[in-house]
Design a protein around this nucleic acid. Sequence first.
RNA 1: GCCGGGAUGGCGGAACUGGUAGACGCACUGGACUCAAAAUCCAGCGGUGGCAACAUCGUGCCGGUUCGAUUCCGGCUCCCGGCACCA
Length: 878
Amino acid sequence: MDSSYQPKLIEKAAQDAWTQADSYRVTEYATNKSGQAKPKFYACSMLPYPSGKLHMGHVRNYTINDVMLRHLRMKGFNVLMPMGWDAFGMPAENAAIANGAAPAAWTYQNIADMKTQMQPLGLAIDWSREVTTCKPDYYKWNQWLFLKMLEKGIAYRKTQLVNWDPVDQTVLANEQVIDGRGWRSGALVEKREIPGYYLGITQYADELLDSVKDKLDGWPSQVRTMQENWIGKSVGVRFAFPHNIGNAQGLIQDGKLFVFTTRADTIMGVTFCAVAPAHPLALHAAASNAAVADFIEKAKAGGTTEVELAVKEKEGVPTGLFVTHPLTQEQIPVWVGNYVLMAYGDGAVMGVPAHDERDFVFAKKYALPIKSVIDFGKPYSTDAWQAFYGDHGVCIDSGPMNGMTFDQAIEYVATQTRPQGGERKTTWRLRDWGISRQRYWGTPIPIIHCKECGEVPVPEKDLPVVLPEDLIPDGSGSPLKKDRRFIDCTCPKCGRPAERETDTMDTFVDSSWYFMRYCNPDNTTAMVDARNDYWMPMDQYIGGIEHAVLHLLYARFWTKVMRDMNLVKFDEPFTNLFTQGMLSAECFYREDGAGKKRWYYPDEVSVNHDDKGRPIGAVAVDDGRPVVLGGMEKMSKSKNNVVEPKDIIARFGADTARAYVMFAGPPEQSAAWSDSGAEGVYRFLKRVYTYGVWSKNAASGTPVGDFSKSSAAVKRLRFEIHTILAQANHDYARLQYNTVVSAAMKMLNALEDTKTQVGADWAAVRNEGLLILLRTLYPLAPHICWQLWHDLGYAVTFGEIIDAAWPVSDPAALEQDEIELVVQVNGKLRGQIRVPKDATKQAIETLALADAGVAKHTDGKPIKKLIVVPGRLINVVV
RNA sequence: GCCGGGAUGGCGGAACUGGUAGACGCACUGGACUCAAAAUCCAGCGGUGGCAACAUCGUGCCGGUUCGAUUCCGGCUCCCGGCACCA
């Protein structure tokens, strides 16, 4: 046993031992020593994008996963922690454009680099299950399931709205549109409709909503709420405004302008209708109305994001067309509005300015009439919008609907409009999932375009459609479109020359089911097999909150599709979800005359403090002149505040890196990195090691004893250790690992405080304490605990620590004869009393009132009330 | 703009179901050890007043419920995540 803590040597030895024993390989149906099947536990982190650099956010994610695995494994579970690579996507193409190299080579190199950086962390990953999404043996199954969805009518083709760069003649991702311009060309971006494939997630909207509301109780409530709102179920009425607008080909949409509304009770307040710029009525009006045509053209400018539409000023133009109010037969003007979405409902809305805030703003702007038809018991004024104008109430000034309640009015409108196609209807905010991407580095969509037969699915026997890995994109669109080797093929139906689809799939497809592939990565004949039935549904999914909606919703949808194809037997993929927060770090900068910031690395500056420890400024090390303290910012390359795991491991070792990222804050919240904080954890581990050395010399091999007859002081230490252990176990259960690190520190503090005490009982109680401490700390800092476990001879008695029994606190140790109670006067702390644990309420009250501090504040005043909270406090109200 | 979070000492954070606010750690200050430094160890450490005992204020802001509020309710401010082609 070395006399000082040497993380490098210890971590190498521990990792070699684990590798040699193949400790992390997990098999299905594992049994314990007595031959019983261990309960399975599948704990998985969201798979990383192989950027090439492992950052502290990854370390945080995988350490949470690893701590959970080691803890539950000791508790007797068969725990799986796999790892893989979300290897398709835009960054590889961008790197390829920048370096003139193929995305494949870049991606594979990054994967190799990241694995090298992950290795020293000592994560209990079963690498035999590694999945890489850009490999044909994986994406073959994306294609296979897509074809099944096509057969079932879940996948279909329609037009989609994209950002179009008119100069580069290419589709842009939202990320590639900067201030309304193409990132490379600088050209103003336009909206354009092109054909693409969609997955019918809305067919599952009801089930996706119901289970997120009622079943997923292992998910954080904010994620459930976000998904609920995203799916956005609205129950209302869909009805038509009849009209006779048309041309030689006939009436537009059969002479019916359909709208959907959740507020059919306000139908008598309609003063206009508004349609989306792409609505057939708008296009019809544009043919003979230059102002409308102009407006529609202008509406094409800009990108496709919801933010852009939402913050845009609500504008419109009258079409000059009129439709008939279905109940009053009044003529209602039709406007084109830039705030009406073609993708939601029918792309048209009824305008009720009196009771809808958006319509109100629109009506004020264009001087349209505002007609109030709901009674609020308060006066209505059209001067300014009031929040209550949108409330439900009783109908007034509504002719036959006068006096109706909300529900009565809805029913009435649905019934009255039925002859014209009116009905009660549910509408979703959720839209079908467009998966076509005009990009190279993704899963090819397995479709062949034939002049004779149209769109023909690639036959199953011809899968996978392999993506060529040697193309180099140049920024002007997908290189697949120029690759005849890929494009040219024969039609599977008629055998004539045909062309392959060059669009690839959204990378969210890859991440919608990879976690199932981990269970059976080697199966070449099926997407999933019985091993997937064993591990899934996943017991714990861990990843960033930024995936709260899209990824998690798509994965849930994909699972339900697989269930309906009898590929899996469960309804939901993730039983429990844990969303971790971000990591930030201090940053420093100096501004030049033009206001441009030069960011300094932490080791380029020296921070000055006042004598209370407050930072009062910082100077650059090189020139001694001041730099600005930039505060805590999300770690980012551009701000030079990225902390790299390899540097921390080199300075302090992996155990410190792991324990500190856990200690830095509650795992679900964002936390700040601090080098000196990490150093504090390093100091703690050094003390653990030093205490281990001392313990070996002082009391090696002392058995755990019977403490029933021990001195009060020995019992007090035991009480303390077991109380902390109970707390740590509670925190392990709720995944609050930051306070588990605190608990381990407290245990060591308590043990060290008694080092001067000698005797068999002291040796025994400290020995028990150290056994508890090592196992409590082990999941967080496995290497040092493994080493001490061996050095102190515990491995011989209790077996390897990785499978040692998890410690539980002894109820006997937690029993106390006397307890301390707090006494408050009017809710303020005024004294403390010690009472026997079984003291009567009467006795406690007498003691409390007799306390000097309490007496001083009650001071003869009459006592109004005495509140006794058993085991906690007494509050005297005077 | 809409949806979802967050805010506690100089800093990261703790306080489990409304019951001692600031555990644990960092920074800082003082001391021990040392020729010296590092490392280590000991002590102090929310603000204000006070030699002290102690008093008083204090959990982003304003208000409410309660014997008692960091915790519950109403109204704000600022920051963060998402908004369907970043992953």
